[in-house]
């Protein structure tokens, strides 16, 4: 199981170890020299960029059950009563 392209596994490993920093650096990763010669890492980068882009589209779709508001209300009423008792 080795990369049969012109890149060696060592080069790939080095590149992939730098990825977290490269992604966050703001520089265009597409210009990285390793990607010009390595199909494996190009495919990896493409997938990771795709995952990050899709994550931004995840929207809030879940609603809490009505019991949550009921509990909030009774907790607030309890607080209010205690406040009055103390006053």
């Amino acid at each position: 199981m080795t990369a049969e392209k012109s890149s060696t596994p060592v080069e790939c490993e080095e590149f992939q170890q730098q990825l977290p920093e490269i992604f966050d650096s703001g520089v265009s990763i597409a210009d990285h020299p390793h990607l010009k010669t390595c199909a494996l890492c190009s495919s990896l980068v493409r997938d990771l960029e795709y995952i990050a882009a899709q994550a931004k589209l995840i929207m809030p779709i879940h609603d809490p059950s009505p019991a949550v508001w009921d509990n909030i209300q009774s907790a607030l009423q309890q607080d209010g009563k205690q406040g009055k008792d103390r006053a």
Partner: peptide, 26 residues
Amino acid sequence: GPRKDFGTRDLRLSGSIDRVTLERAV
């Protein structure tokens, strides 16, 4: 680790996942 990717088939993700699938994976 970084070596994980060697030898895996090139299965492009782009365009292949919907949000529900991604949410489940998360």
